[in-house]
Each structure stands twice: as C-alpha cells, then as structure tokens.
Design a protein around this nucleic acid. Structure first.
Lengths: 347, 347
DNA sequence: ATGAAAGCGCTAACAT
DNA sequence: ATGTTAGCGCTTTCAT
C-alpha cells in the first residue's frame, strides 16, 4: 500500500551487482567498467529509477532546496519576487520552499527553525516587521548556513543583500510632489524597525530639506503591523486628516498601505488629487484601473528575486569561504499618473 | 563548519543510556521509568534537542508535510486559498510546500514528482489549464497517496473535492445582467479543459435559455492559456467587439481575465457600463477602487483552502481506507456594484 | 573493477 | 526497564 519506489538495492539485485557498484555506476564513477555502467544506466532508465532525495539529504546534509522567508505571498511585491526566485532556482536545480510569517516574529522563528531542520541549503530572507532580535538567523549563519537578505534587510548579519533604491525613489517621489505644487506632504510608513521604512523616510526628509521645507514629525505616520491590520492604516489616515496643517499629498510606503489608504480616502469621499494627492509604493499590476490612475513607485521585484537567488546559490556552491559580500541596489520604476497631477492654483 | 545538531546519540552518551532508551523516553513510552524520562527530557530541553525530520521521514516514509499544486501564487484566489490551507495545516502540525505550474502541464508533472519524492503525506491540487492527462496523479493516488482537489478538479480520480458554486454563480451573474436590461452578454472564459470553465459556461447558458434567449457560440471566448498570455485576452476582446452583434455586457471568468478585460476596455476608450457592462470573477481586494466600481463574484478562497486541507489531513490520518468521498460546494459572494448598473433605455 | 561494511538520525522488533 | 540490532536509501571508505 505504500510507495515502494525502486532503490539501488533493487537494481543491484536484478543485475547481480552490489549497491555500491550501482551507486557508482549511476553517478558515472571512472572506476566502473563502461559495460557495467551502460547496463545499470539502461536498467535504471527502464524501471524509471529516481534517487530518494530524503536519503540523500540525510547522508549529505544538504537538500538542493532553498528556503524563502517572507511575511506573506498575498502581496504583489513578494509573489513577483518569488517568481523571480523560482525562475532561476528551477534552472539551477534547486527547489524553493516558501514560508510566511504574516509579519509575526514568533512565526518567523518557527518557520526558520523548520526550514533549517529540513536541511535547506540556504535561506532567502525578507524580515517580518516585528523582527528586531535576529538570533534565529545569526545562529544558523554562524554555523555556516548561507543567507541572503532582500528588501527588508539587517545590518547585524554580514552577507549579500539585495534592495531597491528606497532612499532615492522616496526622494524622487517627494520632489515630484513638491514640483507639482504640493507642500504639506505626509508619509504613511510601514513599521519603524524595517530597513525599507528608514530608507524611504530618509529620502523623503532629504527632499524636503533640499527644498528648504521643514520636516514635520506629525506628517509621518508609522504602521507598526506593516499594514496587516487595516484599522491602523485607517487610524493613521484619520489622524493625518485631522491635523490643522492638513496634508495636501500623501506618500504610501507599501502595497498594503497604498490600497488601504486609497480605500480610506474613497470612504471619506475625498477626491484625488484635488483634496489630496497620492503616490503609492506598490507592485500592483493595475494602477491604471484606479480612479484616478495612480502614480506609483514599482519595485523591481522579479529582478530582486533573481539577483538574490543567484547570489545565494553562488554562496552555496562556492568552494572556498566567501568573505567579500555586496549589497546590490536595484532601480525602481517611478510612473507618474493622474493621482499626483499638478496642483491647481485656487483662484 | 556544518550544522552539528544534537542527536539522541549525544544525549545517550551524555547520560549513559542507549539511543533506544532515549528515543522512547522522548516519546514518553510507558516502558521507561519516570525517573529516566525526567532525566532525558530535562537534558534534551537543556541542550535544545530537535529531532531531525529528515531522518524521521526516511524511517517512517512520511514527513508531516503536504504539497500544494497550483498554477500560480501571484493570483488573489490562490494566495488566499493558500492562507486558508496554512491556517489549518499549521495547527494540525503539518507543513505546506507550495509549487507553481504557471499553467504548464510539464511543469506540473515535474513538481508533482518532486513533491512525491520528498515524501509529502498528501497533495492538494488545483489543475493547470493545460492538464488533460492525469497519469502523474493517478499513479500516486493508486499507490495510496491521499489527494484532494480544489477549484480546478477532475472526474478521473475518485477522492474528496472542494469547489465553489461555479454553475450557480455564473447563472446568477447572467440573470442579474439580463434583469438589468443587457441582452447580448458575452462570456470570456478560461481554458476549455478546466472544470471551472465548463461549470461557469453551463450556468451562463442555462440562464440564457431560461430567459428564452438563444445561446450564441460567438459570444463565448476561451483563453486557452488561462489568461497567462495577455495577448490572448486582448484578442478575444477585440474579436468580441468586432462582432456585428456587439455584446453589451461581458462576464470575465477569472482573476487574470477580469483585469486584462478591464484594461483592454480602458485602452479602447470604452465606458463601463454605458458601452459595455462588466461582471468579473475575481478575488481582488479592491473592486471598489476601480472606476466604475466592479460587480464581482468572489470565490470563498480562504474557506476552500481550509475545507480542502481538513479533508486531506483527515484522509492522511484515517486508520482505515476511506471509500466514501465527497465533493463540497461552497458559496461564492456576488457583490453588485456600478459596472453592471441597469441599462439606460436610450430614447 | 567490484564488493562489504559503516554511517547519516531515528524507531521498533527482539532480546535480557 | 533498558539495551542490542536491524533497517529506511544512499554514499563512501576500505578491502580484495
């Protein structure tokens, strides 16, 4: 009733050879006569022999699989990044195991532990927004497990990293709004711990300063659950709109935050961009379908995934210990649409 | 340099016990003295012992992991379904391995093979739109691997299945359009092989017939790549709009098809619903943000995932062979918005 | 060129 | 109550 697959033992028995000979023949060892090799290979082909990867993992302590640690896949950015990861991993003979933290630190720890115990050969990580303690990664990393961070990275672990040009794109976004006449620009940011949050807020600040505008703390709101809880975005928005210095534009810093922000604005009956302009960091495929069409910063998600997995597999397959690490910064795509149209001078 | 984890052997050595005693103590066997048990448990805790799941898999031929086979995760329906799957699997102690076919039959076969060789304890499957030959599933199923199909199912394998009320919701959708005055309703369907396609087209047909309207084949277009290729949707749309009997409403049968359809309409400068009404099968979170807001059929994705994984785990853990299978049909949510507003009688 | 045997971590049938 | 041994499928010394 169980999955009795063909094993090298079966092949050995059938051919009157020992398991070790079969094993060696299968991997083309030079010490096996070409005759025997041919015989074994042909028979293996005939009975459709597949080596048992579990046995291999146990033996070799590796699995030709890599673990991906993200907050959630129901998010355009991450699902696109995963597609990039898979596109390369597949060709290089690796399998991808995806785990979701749902922005929970505890869940991230459990997932990482499980992946490690499953003998993944390496980890591709984008941190949860609750993660400040990196011990679960540090332990594995110190034991030699290759890790590459992407998007939400950390300084506490020295390894390859792949990010988008967060600082620059937030800077550009803000400049764009300023040029179009907006002066009270709010920033709806994700969790304060995240690298992406810091980088984006810094770019926003710098743009203001470069234009002689003060940085007003009240105009920056953080969503400490990374937008997983709609209420918090809603609250942040309400809070912003209640200010006496009401913002005339808003930059939404992630996918989730962008959509929630738009919904809140819609529910309040406000008009974009007349009442408030919006620019969103989002990898949505349909910013043109919004009304008005949405000005967006689109991260190079697919490409980030590809670059990250390339770096990781290189790390895994490197013969000598790697000490020279790099942080790749990839360019986002800034597309101007109607939601940030030049402010009409009210006469 | 490698991940020397603690093993039962280490514990045995440290405590002067044999591995079997340690093993038994760890799993609380009644034949071990409570003293020894306590000693072992405490030491294991102290050194943070974790059993090696790979060794367990090899030994027991199961892995407490289940494989999910879907076409893609960058799709609201599937990412929501996967969240439903995970929510249950996690609590019942199973891990979920996701694989994407990207609607390719070959890729599906490779993925299934890999999952099987990884000793997944069961499979949760939604077929690729190219799949007509089910041999890769039948082989495993006959060997006793539990499989549950969801959404895109097949009749060729007798097992549990979970689907949405596709027939009914397509029927309701069509009736709704008819009531609102639309009479030339086109149906933009997914690949012809898929169960969801047949069910939905049948519901659509029946609604027409029940209202004394003829079924016009020209008004049904199939996207044989399931919408993976935008061009094919675009072509189908163009084709429909060129008919002398131009449709006044369109039902888009999947997530991808819905968004592409809307984009095409937008690009052609047509107005919804005046030029053409639209109802979309989509699990998008933001149908209110479209302009006009989109009337949708939303599948109970999360719940479908939950029900499917429950059935699968029950199958896996069942002591006796299961022969009594069921096909659960869950209700979709039909939300009427602006894109299908009553047709204005042109005077 | 081939085989025998050990070992990866764990469990379980079989001693004692 | 505890230990010994074999075995899951595979690779890899170490013989021969």
């Amino acid at each position: 009733m169980k999955f009795e697959s063909i094993t090298i033992k079966d092949i050995g028995k059938a051919l009157g050879l020992s398991t070790s000979t079969v094993s060696r023949a299968l991997r083309g060892s030079y010490e096996i006569s070409s005759e025997t090799k041919k015989q074994v290979l042909e028979y293996a082909e005939k009975v459709n022999y597949r080596p048992n990867p579990i046995a291999l993992s146990l033996k070799e302590r590796k699995s030709r699989s890599i673990g991906v640690v993200v907050c959630e896949i129901a998010n355009n950015f991450f699902s696109q990044a995963i597609n990039g990861i898979e596109s390369i991993a597949y060709n290089r003979g690796y399998h991808v195991i995806i785990s979701q933290s749902h922005e929970s630190y505890d869940r991230e720890v459990v997932n990482v532990r499980h992946l490690a115990s499953r003998s993944v050969d390496g980890l591709l990580v984008s941190l949860s927004c609750e993660t400040t303690d990196l011990t679960h990664f540090i332990n594995l990393h110190e034991k030699g497990l290759p890790i590459v961070f992407f998007d939400r990275i950390t300084n506490e672990i020295v390894t390859h990293k792949v990010i988008a040009d967060n600082y620059q794109s937030a800077y550009d976004t803000t400049i764009h709004l300023l040029r179009n006449g907006y002066t009270k620009i709010a920033f709806l940011a994700s969790a304060p711990f995240l690298s992406i949050t810091k980088e984006r807020v810094d770019g926003y600040k710098k743009a203001l300063l470069d234009n002689g505008l003060p940085f007003d703390e009240k105009l920056v709101k953080h969503c400490s659950h990374g937008g997983m809880i709609e209420k918090e975005i809603d609250n942040a928005m309400t809070c912003l709109l209640k200010l006496k210095q009401k913002p005339d534009a808003i930059v939404a810093a992630t996918d989730r935050i962008t959509t929630c922000c738009l919904i809140t604005i819609k529910n309040l009956g406000l008009s974009i961009p007349n009442d408030i302009a919006v620019v969103g960091f989002t990898n949505s495929n349909i910013p043109e379908l919004f009304s008005p069409t949405l000005t967006t910063v689109r991260l190079p998600a697919f490409q980030m995934g590809q670059v990250a997995i390339e770096l990781l597999i290189d790390l895994i397959e490197s013969k000598r210990p790697v000490t020279d690490f790099e942080t790749k910064v990839l360019q986002s795509e800034f597309v101007i649409r109607e939601s940030s149209k030049p402010l009409l001078v009210k006469s």
